[in-house]
């Protein structure tokens, strides 16, 4: 009896703490106002992912995700350098966002249903469609998955990567021999030593590994993608104004590429296209509707450039193909919503 009362007490206390915690988080004002009052953006990032987030020798941050942090800061505060970068691990990234420690999480996070709903998060438009791909020696002359029929393929054991590989080949009715290793390093060493015809993993990882191989030019990453890893900026549920800002900053980078607006020509860009005129803040007053200045998009493009510039600057050196991350006009998935 006494024991049951103790448990009841424990349950009530824990429940109260959690309720208080969640209401405290909900009762806050929009992150947009918080960021503006604070004078800088707090952005959760990855501090060690080639191409996406890392430190330069002079102590400054660089990378694809880092550039999107700067883009948001440029839109909201007019200054791409008004960012405090908080390096986070995979384990703590969502908690840091939920508890309000960071304003936005731009750290190669995959958009899934559970995260979108159960974790109380909102995903802005996908900035990078990652997915499982294949790397092969250039000499083999392989251009598509069908050419890999009967090939031996290096893969890490016990991961979804291994399951995706089997599914993809079974669906196409192709035979293959998996060459399985526990360690990621071993997988790539085996591939480089020619113990398998191809190696499979997420494309961003393949590109990072390719760049450190003895002769990167001797390997190609196939265009085909067999799994979905849409990476997107993340904000908290229930803060629609902030969500809109982050989303439209991403769209702005897509739109600028589509219309040929670059960091070089954005200040002098002239076009009869009404969409472009509204984008540049010449007409329409779109900035005010977002709660930003009317030249917000110019600030974004000036700071980081359009999507192609961001991609080429950060992921180009890794030899990563655009793949799905092409404009919708080129058969890719980047599709900016209309600026009107």
């Amino acid at each position: 009896m006494a024991q049951r009362r103790v448990w009841l007490l424990v349950t009530v206390v824990v429940g109260t703490v959690l309720t208080l915690a969640s209401t405290a988080a909900l009762a806050q004002q929009s992150t947009l106002d918080v960021v503006r009052a604070r004078g800088h953006l707090v952005c959760g990032v990855n501090n060690g992912l080639p191409g996406f987030g890392y430190l330069e020798s002079d102590g400054s941050w660089s990378g694809f995700d880092i550039d999107y942090c700067r883009a948001v800061a440029a839109a909201v505060l007019g200054d791409p350098n008004a960012v405090e970068f908080v390096p986070l691990t995979a384990a703590e990234r969502f908690i840091a966002l939920q508890t309000g420690e960071i304003d936005v999480l731009i750290r190669n996070a995959t958009w899934t249903l559970v995260r979108d709903t159960d974790l109380g998060l909102n995903f802005a438009p996908v900035t990078f469609f990652d997915g499982q791909g294949f790397m092969v020696p250039r000499d083999l002359g392989v251009t598509s998955l069908e050419d890999l029929a009967g090939a031996s393929i290096c893969v890490t054991s016990g991961t979804t990567t291994e399951l995706n590989l089997a599914d993809a080949f079974r669906a196409r009715g192709l035979p293959f021999t998996p060459v399985v290793f526990e360690e990621i390093d071993t997988v790539y060493r085996a591939y480089e030593q020619g113990r398998c015809d191809a190696v499979t993993s997420d494309k961003s990882q393949l590109a990072g590994r390719r760049a450190i191989m003895a002769d990167p030019e001797a390997h190609v990453i196939l265009d085909e993608t067999i799994s979905k890893e849409p990476l997107a900026p993340v904000v908290r549920h229930g803060d629609d104004r902030w969500y809109d800002v982050v989303s439209w900053v991403v769209y702005a980078t897509f739109f600028a590429e589509e219309k040929g607006i670059t960091s070089q020509n954005v200040t002098t860009f002239q076009s009869p296209d009404p969409d472009v005129q509204r984008f540049l803040g010449q007409t329409g007053g779109l900035g005010a509707m977002l709660g930003l200045s009317n030249d917000w998009a110019i600030k974004v493009i000036q700071a980081v450039g359009n999507y192609a510039e961001i991609f080429d600057r950060n992921l180009g050196p890794l030899g990563l193909p655009r793949g799905l991350n092409r404009q919708w006009t080129d058969g890719g998935l980047l599709y900016a919503m209309p600026f009107r």
């Binding site: 060690g48 992912l49 080639p50 191409g51 987030g53 890392y54 430190l55 390096p87 990072g208 760049a211």
Partner: peptide, 9 residues
């Protein structure tokens, strides 16, 4: 972080 810099991969 240094090792994630493409220059020093």
């Amino acid at each position: 972080s240094v090792l994630a810099n493409p220059t020093w991969l």
